[in-house]
Amino acid sequence: MAETTDHDTFADAVREGRLWVALSGNRPVGFALVKMIGSGLPHLEEIDVDPPHGRRGLGTALVRTVCDWAAASGSATLTLTTFRAVPWNLPFYARLGFVEVPFSTLSPELAAIVAEEAHRGLDPATRAVMAYQCGQPLPVSTR
């Protein structure tokens, strides 16, 4: 399933300070996009690094930046959803301090995200909801 994020979503995120871009020279090679799912409830909606620039720490730097931003913004938790079985997804976030949130304990906002993903064709059984407790120290090394 090919999806793209629309221009207005990016423009709103830039205006509201919820988009971070990794550059190689002047060329964008990655980004992290946060969606506010409620008052003080940031959700890492999307993160992407151009594959030729992968495995260089850009994704880690983007996630760490978002975690720092969420903590500085006064948020208690930063959430995300990811594929459960893709080897570089759930373990990557776990190494950065995210923990899985059982579906039975999801807030209404997170349950709505899972439902929206299901509506787009993503089987909830293949997905994991994860949360980072803002303010906790980020691990020094992820490899």
Rank of each mutant, 00 (worst) to 15 (best):
9 T>D: 13
127 R>W: 07
22 A>G: 00
12 D>W: 11
44 L>T: 11
4 T>I: 15
94 A>D: 10
116 E>T: 04
1 M>E: 14
87 P>G: 09
97 G>H: 07
133 Q>N: 06
95 R>T: 05
103 F>E: 12
97 G>Q: 07
101 V>I: 10
78 L>N: 06
62 L>V: 14
35 K>T: 08
103 F>H: 08
113 I>Q: 14
63 V>M: 09
127 R>S: 07
130 M>F: 08
82 T>P: 06
70 A>D: 03
21 V>D: 05
74 G>E: 11
142 T>K: 04
83 F>P: 06
39 S>Y: 12
75 S>C: 15
45 E>L: 06
108 P>K: 02
28 P>C: 08
120 R>P: 01
122 L>T: 03
96 L>M: 08
22 A>R: 00
93 Y>N: 06
46 E>R: 14
48 D>P: 05
101 V>G: 03
46 E>T: 12
18 R>A: 03
84 R>Q: 03
43 H>M: 02
17 G>A: 02
132 Y>G: 13
32 A>T: 14
64 R>Y: 15
112 A>E: 14
55 R>G: 08
38 G>Q: 01
109 E>V: 00
113 I>N: 09
2 A>S: 14
70 A>W: 01
56 R>W: 11
53 H>F: 15
37 I>W: 02
94 A>E: 15
72 A>G: 02
117 E>F: 00
77 T>W: 01
57 G>P: 10
131 A>F: 01
121 G>T: 07
108 P>E: 15
8 D>A: 11
76 A>V: 04
100 E>S: 14
11 A>Y: 08
133 Q>K: 10
35 K>D: 15
30 G>H: 13
116 E>I: 00
128 A>I: 03
55 R>K: 14
59 G>E: 01
15 R>G: 13
51 P>F: 01
50 D>R: 11
120 R>M: 07
14 V>G: 08
36 M>F: 07
138 L>S: 08
72 A>S: 07
16 E>H: 08
122 L>K: 10
37 I>C: 03
41 L>D: 10
90 L>H: 02
91 P>M: 01
14 V>Y: 12
23 L>R: 11
124 P>G: 07
131 A>S: 13
65 T>H: 15
122 L>F: 13
116 E>D: 14
44 L>Q: 11
69 W>C: 02
116 E>C: 00
119 H>N: 12
110 L>C: 03
118 A>I: 05
115 A>W: 00
40 G>K: 05
2 A>M: 13
89 N>C: 02
64 R>I: 13
29 V>W: 15
97 G>C: 09
47 I>K: 07
31 F>K: 09
64 R>P: 04
101 V>C: 04
25 G>S: 04
118 A>Q: 12
63 V>E: 05
93 Y>D: 03
36 M>D: 15
79 T>I: 04
103 F>R: 15
49 V>W: 02
16 E>N: 12
138 L>N: 01
88 W>D: 14
64 R>E: 09
51 P>T: 11
83 F>R: 07
89 N>K: 00
115 A>G: 04
54 G>M: 09
12 D>I: 12
91 P>F: 00
138 L>W: 13
60 T>G: 13
89 N>I: 03
111 A>C: 04
52 P>K: 10
60 T>A: 15
5 T>Y: 06
124 P>V: 10
